[in-house]
Each structure stands twice: as C-alpha cells, then as structure tokens.
Amino acid sequence: MTPITMVEGRRIALSNLDKVIYPETGFTKGEVLHYYATVAPALLPHVADRPVSFLRYPDGPDGQLFFTKNPPPGTPDWVRTAAVPRSEDPGARQVVIADMPTLMWAANLVVEFHTHQWTAGHPAVANRLVLDLDPGPPATVVECCAAALWLRDRLAADGLTAYAKTSGSKGLHLAVPLEPTPSATASAYAKRLAQEAERDHPDLVVHRMAKALRPGKVFVDHSQNAAAKTTAAPYTLRARARPTVSAPVSWAEVEACRSPAALDFLADDVVARLARDGDLFAPLTDPERAGALP
C-alpha cells in the first residue's frame, strides 16, 4: 500500500520511497522528499506566491523528462492555482507552491521547480530580474563567474543589487529584486545589459542564443525575463546525473572560483550550507531591497 502521510493537516500519498532517482549516487525518492522537507523554510518564500512550472523526471534523469505548466492530473483540490495569461489558452492556470503540504505533494511527483519573475495576481509585472549565464564548452562556470562580476558591478552602477546562485547544471543565475516593473520593460533592460557586456568583453560574453557563437563564451540569456518564461527556483533539485541543486552562493565564492568543482553543490551540501549560512537569497524577498530600473 502507498503510505499516507499527514502534513500540516493534509493527507498526502507518498509513493515508491525506496526508488533510486539518481543512480550515480543512489539517491532515492525518499531522500528527495526529505531534502525538500528540510530546505522548505528557505525554499518556500521564493515560490510561495509565484506560479510554477514542473520539469518532471519520475524515473530519474535518464528516464522520460516532461515539462508541464498546467496542474497535473490528480492535483488535490486544496492545492492553490493561479491564472497565468497565455495567448494559446487565456484560461490557463498553474500551481502555486504556497505551503509545506503543496511542496511535499509536488516533490512526490519528482520535479524541478521553475518560477516566473512575477507573482500571482500581478502577471507580467516583474519584481525580479534574472540573467542566466550559460557557458559554451570549453568555457565553464569559472568563465560565468568572470561575467557575473562584471554584471554585478554594472547593475550596481544603475542602483541595482544582484545575488548569485548556481544553476544546478553548468552555469550561474543572477537575480535582482525590482520594484514592480512591466515584464516587457525588464526584458528590454536585460537585453541591453547583455549586449553591453558583449561589447565590453567580446572574448567572454555573447548575448545571442545561436550555438555557433557560443563555444568558449558565456551566453548571457536575458530572455527569461519575458512574462511567459520561467527560471529554476532557488533550492530546486535538478534532473542531472547527480542530485545537484540550484544553490545561492556568496559573492566571495564567485570571486574565488577557480574550478567548476568550487560551485558544484549536491542536496546534502546545500542542507549543510543553510545550517551554516542561512538563506543567501533572503534579500530577494525583502521589498526594501527592491530597486528601480533606470
């Protein structure tokens, strides 16, 4: 029988707890659920009012992966959803991970969490700017760190404060708390910034997605600021060979990065980091930290 667990008064069926999700390390589905329960105090503030998309990988990263925006079949009626405007479906809704029961229900599906840059109730009005730094081999996260430092200082010149996290894959994400701003305005600013970075460092940065332009350079992906786009949430596990996490990092760590291993964090690493450092992304949830675009 599938065990039923009570989470804050909600009955949740947690299945296949011994199933190995990450074969390279033997990390099981039960450990996935334990990880999310442990990091919930840090994770929930970053997703609690943002519609999420799921990248599901119930048979592990080597199995079928499928991206879903709509609430999955069987979503409990107590799970909050929010309207998400889409041209192809004006009545679309997405799940909001509003509390611990919803987080545990979603984690049981084995998912990556991806969020919009705007909150439920204010679609297409960004309160966060995101830049996704993606290295083209042989470039690595080391080159991403060099680009991130330039972008941090350039953003600071405009009165904006950037915070960094690993993507949980190969690169870095920069996030900036914003005063409410139309997503189109935030997107245009992010594109100008990426173009300026390329002009200043043409041997390091590229702002266009074309693969032919990217070997050995860092693609500064500004497109994730579009209202329809989502980005991997802080503390989400990723569907990689190992249970890597999109983990907030300090600027001191970015400055000191000399090898990809320096910013490669697994679930257990992140639990230890939270116990030691707290949530390095906490300022993003503080309205007093929000900046205005120039």
Rank of each mutant, 00 (worst) to 15 (best):
R273V: 01
G168W: 07
Y35W: 07
A42R: 05
A262R: 14
N127K: 11
A227C: 12
P45F: 00
K211F: 01
A226H: 12
H114L: 03
S167K: 03
P23M: 04
V220R: 06
L237W: 08
A186D: 10
F113Q: 02
L266T: 02
P138C: 05
R199G: 09
P234C: 11
V141F: 07
A275E: 15
M100Q: 15
R80M: 14
G291R: 02
D153K: 07
G216S: 04
A233M: 10
L193D: 01
A212R: 14
A82Y: 00
F67D: 10
P123I: 10
R128P: 01
K165A: 03
L44R: 00
T75Y: 11
E88W: 13
P234E: 10
K19I: 07
P90L: 05
A190H: 00
A124K: 00
K69H: 12
Q195N: 11
I4L: 14
P243V: 01
L263H: 10
T161K: 13
H34M: 07
L33W: 10
V7H: 09
A148Y: 07
A40I: 02
R154I: 06
K170A: 04
L284E: 04
K19A: 05
P243N: 09
R199D: 15
K191T: 10
V79E: 00
D49R: 14
T75F: 10
P76S: 12
P260L: 08
E255C: 11
L43W: 03
R208K: 13
L65C: 02
A162T: 02
V206L: 07
R273T: 00
P135W: 05
A184K: 13
A120P: 00
W251K: 06
E198A: 09
V271N: 05
G121T: 09
Q64A: 12
A124E: 11
R214N: 13
E255P: 03
L133P: 08
T5E: 00
A146R: 14
P138A: 03
W251N: 01
L266V: 05
P58N: 09
F67S: 10
V254H: 00
N225C: 02
R10K: 15
H201R: 14
V220Q: 06
R273F: 08
R289L: 10
A48H: 11
K170E: 12
F27D: 03
V7N: 14
C144G: 05
Y22S: 01
P177M: 04
A83I: 07
P51D: 01
V218T: 03
N70T: 14
K19Y: 01
R242F: 02
G291T: 01
A107E: 01
V84L: 06
S259H: 13
Y189G: 07
F265G: 04
A190S: 01
P180G: 12
P90G: 06
A210K: 15
R242M: 09
E88F: 13
T185E: 15
E24Q: 15
V110W: 05
E253P: 03
D132T: 12
E31Q: 15
R10C: 13
P137M: 07
L55F: 06
T285H: 01
